[in-house]
Simulated scan of single mutants.
Amino acid sequence: MSSVRSFTDFGTLREIVVGSPAGFHIPDADLSLRHFFGLPADHVEPLPAAGALERAVEETEEDLQALSETLGRLGVTVRRPDPFEQGRPLSLLDWSTTANHALMPRDCLLVVGERIIEAPMAVRARYAETFPFRTLLREYFASGATWVAAPRPQLPDSTYEFTEDGPVLAESEPLFDAANLLRCGSDLFFNVSNTGNRMGAEWLRRLLGSEYTVHEISICDDHIGTTLHILRPGVLLANAGRLTPDTLPEQFQGWKVLWFDEPEDDGFALTWPRASTWIGMNILAYDEQTIIVPARQEGLARLLEKEGFTAVPVPFRHGRTFGGGFHCCTLDVRRDGSLTSYL
């Protein structure tokens, strides 16, 4: 059996990849980055205070090590990426930038069953983001997993459209971050947004075939992990600042919803935050009962425990600094469960 096998975000976790902040590089604010973060056209990336980035990287690695140890005590196999020199130049046709980080495998890699898919990401600085994970990908391929890469995008300037409703992606080539997906067995929910277009959803639909249904939704500006989580079949965790009972995807109407509306603000170490305070609900489930939460999110822990879940607090100080929480910074490679419909 392939060592890659995961159909949900809630089956009992057996193996996971934890990212690395080492060498985190702040790229120039090119068109693709301004589009992703909704920055003004005249934005110039300011230099952080002396030592601020280095301290944030060091503290984030400490927190990810604490996460890895917590997962290890639960019996989970933890894998890490290879060292990678960030900040090296990246160039393709009409654009150039620099490599960014290897912190968030959830964004660049998507596990669906025994497939592991390299996502066609829209931010140019993230073009080579899967490279630090290639040793693991080769190992998983050797174990029997299907290793697929989406078409490598060209990312011309025309990709990035700015509308009255906010930034969107042109439908000129398949584009999506893997973190746009919510996995629920044979049903996948694809958030059409400024990090995923309908062509990307259609490409994924054709790749996966008739065993899966890819539902297109639009519930937030980019990644789905700060807006909606499936805690277990029939129970959701939802962002009360972005969703209402009427705007939940129709497939979840009738499910029990834990509405979260008071995230703690962890602050940020650089000159501007890469995520809102809602990064505090970027959780990681060990199983249908046990949820790893950022230690400062005590209100979230109470909400979960009131419903009968076990909340496991782990320190995480720089979710807003780098724009990712526990879900973003991990990739579950193997979970218990089989291909079935939970709807």
Rank of each mutant, 00 (worst) to 15 (best):
residue 291 I to C: 01
residue 86 Q to L: 11
residue 104 M to N: 14
residue 276 S to Y: 04
residue 325 G to H: 04
residue 286 Y to R: 14
residue 104 M to R: 12
residue 122 A to D: 14
residue 152 R to M: 09
residue 269 A to S: 09
residue 51 G to A: 03
residue 274 R to E: 09
residue 304 L to D: 05
residue 17 V to H: 01
residue 295 A to V: 06
residue 51 G to L: 03
residue 172 S to H: 13
residue 51 G to S: 07
residue 68 S to K: 00
residue 320 R to S: 07
residue 193 S to W: 05
residue 247 T to R: 08
residue 283 I to R: 00
residue 320 R to K: 08
residue 189 F to G: 06
residue 149 A to F: 06
residue 267 G to Q: 04
residue 325 G to Q: 01
residue 151 P to K: 11
residue 205 R to Q: 10
residue 263 P to A: 15
residue 17 V to A: 01
residue 218 S to W: 01
residue 313 P to I: 05
residue 41 A to G: 09
residue 247 T to K: 02
residue 243 L to P: 03
residue 127 Y to L: 15
residue 283 I to M: 03
residue 306 K to A: 13
residue 186 S to T: 10
residue 227 T to A: 04
residue 217 I to Y: 03
residue 59 E to P: 07
residue 204 L to C: 05
residue 12 T to S: 12
residue 211 E to G: 07
residue 312 V to H: 05
residue 303 L to D: 11
residue 107 D to A: 13
residue 33 L to T: 08
residue 102 A to E: 05
residue 101 H to K: 08
residue 266 D to F: 12
residue 97 T to K: 07
residue 29 A to V: 02
residue 199 M to D: 06
residue 322 F to C: 13
residue 101 H to W: 05
residue 191 N to C: 09
residue 271 T to R: 12
residue 119 A to M: 08
residue 299 G to W: 02
residue 248 L to I: 06
residue 332 D to F: 06
residue 74 L to A: 15
residue 247 T to A: 08
residue 194 N to W: 08
residue 18 V to D: 00
residue 90 L to W: 07
residue 98 T to I: 09
residue 158 S to R: 15
residue 169 L to S: 09
residue 283 I to D: 02
residue 94 D to E: 15
residue 95 W to A: 12
residue 145 A to V: 07
residue 340 T to N: 08
residue 137 L to T: 05
residue 50 A to G: 06
residue 186 S to W: 04
residue 40 P to V: 02
residue 145 A to M: 06
residue 342 Y to M: 08
residue 245 P to E: 14
residue 245 P to K: 12
residue 192 V to G: 02
residue 19 G to D: 00
residue 120 P to I: 09
residue 285 A to S: 09
residue 201 A to D: 01
residue 195 T to P: 01
residue 117 I to M: 10
residue 156 P to Q: 13
residue 49 A to N: 08
residue 272 W to H: 12
residue 50 A to Y: 14
residue 258 L to G: 04
residue 130 T to G: 06
residue 133 F to C: 02
residue 115 R to D: 09
residue 122 A to Q: 14
residue 110 L to E: 08
residue 68 S to H: 04
residue 57 V to W: 12
residue 17 V to P: 00
